[in-house]
Computed example of a mutant assay.
Amino acid sequence: MTDTLLDIAEVAAASGLAPSALRFYEKRGLITPAGRNGLRRTFRPDVLGRLALVSCARGAGFTIAEIAGFLRATPSDTELRAGMARKARELDEDIARLTRMRDSLRHASTCTHEPLVECPDFKTTFENATAPGDFARKAV
């Protein structure tokens, strides 16, 4: 069974990305067109899964170069795998920081302390749980 090809406009609409972003991702080796229909690029439907991965990785702070390396990775790429493990640790730190912020905001949304940011429960969340480097890394 042959997959129905999607033209670049259909991929853009389905992925929420601009056609220019798709052309950029193609140029960087993140996606590959199946061919052309006239002047328009066409893609296999599985490109949408690849784009979802790229978008997720971009949202997690990966650079285009890091994503390209990840997409080419093989089990023997020990340096790349070490980089992936390092990035996973950074994501764990980000998740913990964002969880603290979310929990504090949830508390503040129902708290009656005035002002809200002076609430002992709100302040304790940050005073006891701020990871070293949070300020330096995020302030840049």
Score class of each variant (00 low, 15 high):
A12C: 04
T2K: 14
M1I: 07
K87P: 05
D92E: 12
A57H: 09
T112M: 08
T125W: 10
R97C: 03
G16W: 01
T78P: 06
L5T: 11
T99G: 05
G38Y: 02
D3H: 14
D92K: 10
R86V: 06
L5V: 04
C56R: 14
V54C: 00
E66P: 00
S76K: 07
I67Y: 02
R106S: 12
G83F: 03
A139S: 15
E66I: 00
V47K: 11
T2D: 15
A52M: 08
L53C: 05
C119P: 09
R44E: 11
D121N: 15
A129D: 15
N37H: 08
T99E: 13
R23Q: 02
A9P: 04
G35L: 00
G83H: 05
S109G: 07
R137G: 04
L91H: 08
T99D: 07
G38H: 04
T125V: 14
V140W: 06
R40F: 07
A139W: 15
T125L: 15
R58C: 01
L39A: 13
S104K: 12
P33A: 10
F70E: 01
I64T: 04
R40D: 14
R36G: 05
C119G: 03
G59C: 03
G38E: 02
L5S: 05
V117R: 13
F62S: 09
A57F: 05
F24L: 12
F70S: 09
E127A: 14
T99P: 03
G83Y: 01
F24A: 02
G49C: 12
L91S: 07
S104R: 08
R97L: 14
E118W: 07
R86C: 02
V47Q: 09
R100H: 06
D103H: 11
T42E: 01
E79G: 10
A12S: 14
G29Y: 04
N37L: 12
A52V: 01
L5H: 07
I8R: 00
L5G: 03
A88D: 11
R44F: 12
L98R: 08
H107I: 07
R28P: 04
L105G: 06
L6Q: 05
I31N: 00
V140M: 08
D7S: 12
D7A: 06
D134Y: 14
D94Q: 15
A88I: 13
R81T: 13
L105M: 11
T63E: 03
R36D: 09
T78W: 10
K87F: 10
S104E: 05
I67E: 05
R100C: 05
G59N: 07
R97V: 07
R23C: 00
L6P: 08
A12I: 00
L48N: 00
T99F: 02
R89L: 13
Y25S: 01
F126L: 11
G83T: 14
D134W: 13
T32F: 03
T42L: 00
G16R: 03
K87L: 07
G38T: 01
T124Y: 09
A136M: 12
D3T: 15
T2A: 11
L80C: 09
L22N: 03
A34N: 00
